[in-house]
């Protein structure tokens, strides 16, 4: 038997203290990812600190059009929130395209952001994996990697971040609120929250031990913007993205792109904000040629592997379709 202790935190200070400086302690939210990883032997916490009773379970719409989402808000609640559906529909779409109804009813906002990769080698302790056991090597690069990353990857790791929600949040310029282990509050833009693997793929975020995600803030979307989350997957539900695209588009009267934001899922170790493509597109007419050029600019730095090179082409088509739909004024 592998014993571990379980405590239920009553306030965030106690939660942080219980985890800080105890590398073997972990926060437990919905447990839909962590408990699975414990069963597989990938996560072996000595202590679970249950944070689900902490007071971060609210969705607060503010007068300026922004929203503050508690880290413990369940995915199902967030996707059903009328304000979110009305003003951040891409987030609701992303959430509803993820996992299953049962899982979404348990999974939390914070846990979703911090879920681990689905790379099969990461999840199998009998195989080498630099992310799970640094220095052992990457089994995916010479093995099966159709579902893994094409951009932002490294020679040490090609795993992808699996979250749909985080891709929508990336395109919505989300800001993560963190209560640091020492009690101080800090905000981190989502675009700086995740780390690229480089040669330390086991380090995935800027969080240190005991740092607690408390909320996610979404600023008001640009006036007149339309948005969409489109997920392409290997079956019609209950599958992680092969590639997903989140887009926010605002056009001027003559059809030029006043503002365009793009984020991609399924292609990178982090929710991938496609800044290069955005730059190419902003202020221009979204012709198919330009959209293709924008995607090409984005993927100039890609590192495709033999089985997953198709993702670049797929993402290009998806960007093209999505932006043209949205620029046509339709909430596709």
């Amino acid at each position: 038997m592998r014993p571990f202790s379980y405590e239920r935190a009553t306030d965030s200070g106690a939660a942080a203290t219980a985890v800080k400086d105890h590398p073997e302690a972990m926060f437990l939210a919905g447990g839909t990812n962590l408990v699975d990883l414990m069963k597989l032997g990938v996560a072996r916490p000595a202590t679970l600190v249950d944070i689900t009773r902490l007071p971060y379970d609210r969705i607060e719409h503010r007068a300026d059009g922004s929203v503050l989402i508690g880290a413990l808000v369940r995915n199902s609640e967030l996707s059903g929130d009328p304000g979110v559906r009305e003003r951040f529909p891409a987030l609701a779409e992303a959430l509803l395209s993820g996992a299953s109804g049962q899982l979404r009813a348990i999974a939390t906002t914070g846990g979703n952001l911090l879920q681990r990769t689905r790379c099969p080698y990461f999840q199998d302790v009998t195989k080498p994996c630099n992310k799970r056991t640094p220095g052992t090597g990457c089994s995916a690069i010479g093995g099966l990697h159709r579902d893994l990353g094409v951009i932002g990857t490294s020679d040490a790791c090609v795993a992808t971040h699996p979250s749909d929600m985080a891709v929508a949040m990336a395109v919505l310029d989300a800001i993560v609120h963190v209560r640091l282990a020492d009690g101080a509050d800090r905000t981190v833009p989502l675009s700086e929250f995740y780390l690229l693997p480089g040669d330390t793929p086991h380090r995935e975020t800027v969080l240190a031990s005991g740092d607690l995600v408390t909320r996610v803030e979404l600023p008001a979307p640009p006036a007149g913007a339309v948005m969409r989350y489109w997920k392409v997957r290997d079956r019609w539900s209950y599958a992680f993205a092969v590639v997903s695209v989140a887009a926010v588009v605002a056009t001027t009267a003559d059809g030029t792109l006043r503002e365009v934001r793009l984020a991609l899922g399924g292609v990178a170790p982090v929710p991938w904000r496609a800044r290069q493509a955005e730059q190419v597109l902003t202020g221009r007419h979204p012709t198919p040629e330009l959209l293709r050029a924008a995607a090409q600019a984005e993927f100039a730095a890609a590192r495709p592997l033999p089985q997953n090179a198709f993702k670049i082409d797929l993402a290009t088509d998806m960007i093209t379709t999505t932006v043209r739909h949205l620029a046509g004024g339709r909430q596709a």
Binding site: R118, P120, G143, D234, R235, W236, S237
Partner: peptide, 29 residues
């Protein structure tokens, strides 16, 4: 459309050995 038990040439193991990786048709299919 879906089922594919994938052999990993290096380890000699079926790599996608769970029901998240081995896709079986779901209701919505």
């Amino acid at each position: 459309l879906y089922e594919n038990l994938e052999m990993d040439p290096q380890s000699g193991d079926f790599a996608n050995h769970d029901l998240a990786g081995y896709h079986i048709a779901s209701n919505s299919d």
